[in-house]
Design a protein around this nucleic acid. Structure first.
Length: 479
RNA sequence: GGCGCCAUCGUCUAGAGGUCAGGACGGCGGGUUUUCAGCCCGUAGGCCGGAGUUCGAUUCUCCGUGGCGCUACCA
C-alpha cells in the first residue's frame, strides 16, 4: 500500500509537471523466499487498476531500457569496478560466518553495529590478487571516516548524517549482483531520473547513496521522502501488504478513483480547502511536494470504505450497472452472458441498492431479492410482520389489487398501498412493512414502492401467493 | 544500544505568533414518521511535558518523553 501511494505521488508529480513516470523492476534480491515472479503481474495490475500507466517501464519499454535490473548487471559491475579503482569502494573477503559472528559480538557488548572494515585495510594489490585468484568477495562502499554527509529533502528539509555512523555498505554481492544501493544510484543516473520519491524508511540509507553520487561525479536527483503508512497496529505495513494484497482488495469492489483519492490524502493535503473528495483532475491541479506531510499516517479502512461509498453513489446508472453486473453473475443471480431482460433488470436495480453499498462485493446480497424468489421469510420478517393479525388480509388485498397488466409504476404502487390502508382503516406503515416482508422475505431493503414496481405484477402475484403459505403455516395454532 | 524521523480531536488533517484551534472519517443525538441505508442538522472530542524567545506561543529554539523507522551479500 505504501509503495502504491508512493507511485501515486510520483505519477502525480510527473503528470503535473510535464514529466515522465518511470517504473523500474528492482529484482536484485534473488532469495527464493522473497523473489516471486508472479508478483510482477500484481504490480502491473495494481498500476493499471489505479490508472497510473507509466510512460516508461518494462512492459512498453522506453528510451532508457531495459527497465529490469536483472538485465542490467554488467552496468553495475562496471560501476563497481570504477568505484574500486577510484578507492571509493573496496573488495571485502569476509565470510558470512565471520560477519554473523561479528554482529553477534557487537550486539552482546552493546556496541554500534556495522562492518568492522577489516578488509578495508587490505592493500589494493593484495585484494586484486585474491580476487583474481577467484576468492569470493563483495564490494563495499568506503565511507569517509570523518565529517558529515548532508543532503536536502523536498519534504523533510535538510538532513545530515555523521559519516562515522554510516556503515560500509555492500554494493556488489559475492554473486556479482548489485545491492539496491548501487543499482538504484546507477539506474537513476542512467535513466535520467530527476526526482526520487520513496518511503521515509529509506532515509537512513540516503547518505550512502549521496556518497555514491559524489564518488561517481554525478548530479543528485531531488530527494523526496514521504511519510510511512502504518497499519492499525501503528507499525509499518509489512511487505505482505504489497501489490498482491492490494489486488485482492481491489477485487472486493473498491473503485480506482476512490482508492486513488484516499491514498493521495494519506500524507498529502490540498491545504485549507475543507473537502476530501477530489476528482483525478482536481488532484492534479493541486498536487505538489509542498503539500506532503511529515507524519506517518495510519491506514484507516473505515474512511476508505466511506470514500468508496461516496464514489459509488456518484456513479451514473450506466456505470453502476456495468460495475454490478459481473458481481451478480459471480453470485449466480444473472446468467453469462446476461439476457436482455437481465441487463434491463440490473439497470433498474443498481440505483436502488447504491445507498446501501460501500463495496461492490455487497451488490449480490443487496440485489438478490430482485433476481431470486425468497426461500422463506427471515426471522424478523416472520415475527414482526407475517405473524401479525392483519398480515393475511393485507397480502390478500394486495393480491387482488395488483393490476392485470405487465407493469406497475412507482406511483401506481404507492396508490395501491394507499388504497389498501384506506380500505382496512389502518396506517400505511403496517401495509408497507408487511408487503415488503411478503414480497422479499426481508425487513430491510429499498423503498417498497420501488420494489413493487421493479418486481412487477406477475412476479408479485407469484411471490405474494407463496407468502400466504408462510402466513398460514405461521398462524396455524401449535398442535 | 547507535543513528534518523515525527509529535494538533480515537483516525486523516488545516493551521506557518494574537483563531470561539477549522474540516473529514468514526462516535453520540435529532430530523426525513416506509425499514435499512442515504441525506440534512446538531454534539462530544485535540495542540505530549518542561524551560527559553516574545507584550503574546499550538505555531520559533532547546531539553525531556513518547511513537515509528533503519541498523542484512532484503528492498
Amino acid at each position: 500500500m505504501g509503495n502504491l501511494r508512493t507511485a501515486v505521488f510520483a505519477w502525480l508529480l510527473a503528470r503535473a509537471n510535464g514529466g515522465q513516470f518511470v517504473v523500474r523492476l528492482e529484482d536484485t534480491d534473488r532469495d527464493p523466499e522473497r523473489y516471486r515472479p508472479e508478483f510482477i503481474a500484481d504490480i502491473e495490475e495494481s498500476l493499471r487498476f489505479l490508472g497510473l500507466e507509466p510512460d516508461e517501464w518494462w512492459v512498453t519499454g522506453g528510451p532508457y531500457g531495459p527497465y529490469v535490473q536483472s538485465e542490467r548487471l554488467a552496468l553495475y559491475q562496471e560501476t563497481a569496478r570504477r568505484l574500486v579503482a577510484g578507492a571509493s569502494a573496496y573488495r571485502c573477503f569476509c565470510t558470512a560466518e565471520r560477519l554473523a559472528q561479528m554482529r553477534q559480538t557487537q550486539q552482546e557488548r552493546g556496541l554500534p553495529p556495522g562492518y568492522d572494515r577489516r578488509c578495508r585495510r587490505l592493500s589494493p594489490g593484495e585484494a586484486a590478487q585474491r580476487a583474481d585468484a577467484g576468492e569470493a568477495h563483495t564490494v563495499r562502499l568506503a565511507v569517509p571516516l570523518e565529517g558529515r554527509t548532508a543532503c536536502s529533502d523536498a519534504v523533510y528539509g535538510d538532513i545530515s548524517f555523521e559519516n562515522r555512523t554510516v556503515d560500509d555498505q555492500v554494493l556488489l554481492k559475492s554473486s556479482g549482483w548489485p545491492t539496491y544501493h548501487l543499482a538504484v544510484v546507477v539506474d537513476d543516473h542512467e535513466m535520467a531520473i530527476t526526482h526520487v520519491i520513496r518511503g521515509e524508511d529509506w532515509m537512513p540509507s540516503t547518505p550512502k547513496q549521496v556518497l555514491l553520487y559524489q564518488a561517481l561525479g554525478w548530479e543528485q536527483p531531488v530527494w523526496a521522502h514521504v511519510p510511512l503508512i502504518l497499519g492499525p497496529d501503528r507499525k509499518k505495513l509489512a511487505k505482505r501488504h504489497g501489490a498482491t494484497q492490494f489486488v485482492e482488495m481491489a477485487r472486493e469492489g473498491y473503485l480506482p478513483e476512490a482508492i486513488l483519492n484516499f491514498l493521495v490524502l494519506l500524507g498529502w493535503s490540498a491545504g485549507d480547502e475543507n473537502r476530501e473528495v477530489f476528482s483525478r483532475a482536481e488532484i492534479l491541479e493541486r498536487f505538489g511536494l509542498r503539500g506532503i506531510s511529515r507524519n506517518p499516517a495510519i491506514f484507516d479502512y473505515e474512511k476508505l470504505r466511506w470514500m468508496n461509498g461516496e464514489y459509488i453513489r456518484s456513479c451514473p446508472t450506466d456505470r453502476l450497472a456495468e460495475l454490478c453486473l459481473p458481481r451478480l453473475q459471480g453470485a449466480g443471480l444473472v446468467g453469462r452472458p446476461p439476457s436482455e431482460a437481465e441487463v434491463e433488470l440490473v439497470r433498474q436495480v443498481a440505483p436502488l441498492i447504491t445507498d446501501r453499498m460501500k463495496l461492490l462485493a455487497e451488490a449480490p446480497a443487496l440485489a438478490e431479492m430482485f433476481f431470486r424468489d425468497p426461500e422463506g421469510p427471515d426471522d424478523r420478517a416472520r415475527r414482526k410482520w407475517l405473524s401479525a393479525p392483519g398480515a393475511a388480509r393485507i397480502v390478500q388485498e394486495a393480491l387482488s389489487a395488483l393490476p392485470g397488466g405487465g407493469a406497475m409504476s412507482i406511483g401506481e404502487a404507492e396508490a395501491m398501498v394507499n388504497r389498501i390502508a384506506a380500505s382496512m382503516g389502518i396506517d400505511r406503515a403496517p401495509v408497507i412493512h408487511t408487503l415488503r416482508a411478503a414480497s422479499t422475505g426481508r425487513t430491510v431493503g429499498p423503498g417498497l414502492y420501488e420494489i413493487l414496481s421493479v418486481l412487477g405484477p406477475a412476479r408479485l402475484r407469484r411471490r405474494l401467493a407463496r407468502a400466504m403459505e408462510w402466513i398460514s403455516a405461521d398462524s396455524a395454532p401449535p398442535a
